[in-house]
Design a protein around this nucleic acid. Sequence first.
DNA 1: ATGGTAGGTCTCCTA
Length: 261
Amino acid sequence: MSTIRIATWNINSLRLRLPLLHRLVEALQPDVLCLQETKVPDELFPAEGVAELGFGHALHWGMKGYNGVAILSRLPLERLEAPDWCGKSDCRHISARVAGDVTVHNFYVPAGGDVADRAVNEKFGHKLDFITEARAHFEAQAPARSVLVGDLNIAPLEHDVWSHKQLLDVVSHTPVETEGLLAWQRAGFQDALRHFVPEDQKLYTWWSYRNRDWRASNRGRRLDHVWTTPDLTPLSHQILVDARDWPQGSDHVPVCVEIGV
DNA sequence: ATGGTAGGTCTCCTA
C-alpha cells in the first residue's frame, strides 16, 4: 500500500496569499493540495509560483472576483468532467484522477447568505439545491476510491460548532443544512476527520474575521471537510490551527489527511 | 440586539 497526503484550504485569494503556501507546504508536505476561493480567473492563474512550490501539476477553474477552485499536485493529474451544479458554471467544483485510480473531488459549496429561509434569501435556496444535487449525483453514481474535500460551508455535528444551541438558526448549522450534508455524505463517503477525532470533542477549521481575539473567544466552526470512500484508509490527520495567526491569513485553516491507497 | 473584518473591485458584493 502506498500513501498520499491530501490537503484542503480555503485560501481566500490565491494571488494575495501565494507566499503563505510555502508555510503550508513546509508544515503539511501535501502531495495534493486543493484550494477554494482562489478568486483568480484562469488566464491569471499563477502557474509559475505554484510550480516553484513543487507542484508541477495544477488544474484550476476560476472566475473574476468570486469563488474559484484549484488542485495542485506533485503527481500527474488527469482532469475529470464535473457536473454543472445548479446550471451556474460558477467555479465551485473541480475533480481529477491521481496516483493511477484515485479520484479527488474539490468542492466550494455556496455559503448561503445570512437568512436561513429560501423564501426570502435566494442564496440559501442555491445552497440547499447545490447539496441536494450533489447528493443525487453520488447516489446515482456510487463513488469508489475517492476523496472528497473542500469548504462545504456546513458544520454538520453538534461539536462542529462552538455552541450548538446558539447556532441552530445560523446559516451553516441549521437542521436542513446539516441533514442535507449528512445525506450527501451517506451517498458513499466517510468523514475522515471524525475518524480521528471523536464526535463528542470540539473540532473547528474556521474562525470569523470579526472576532477580535479568535483564539480567546474560540467561536469556531468545522466548515472544511475530508471525506473518503470505505475502500481507502485514512492514516493520520492534521489541522493547522496555527495558520489562523499567519500574517494576513485566511479565516479558514488548512486540513490534511494521509491516506493509504 | 448589534456589529464586528476581509478581499476584490469600482461602489458595493460576498463571505
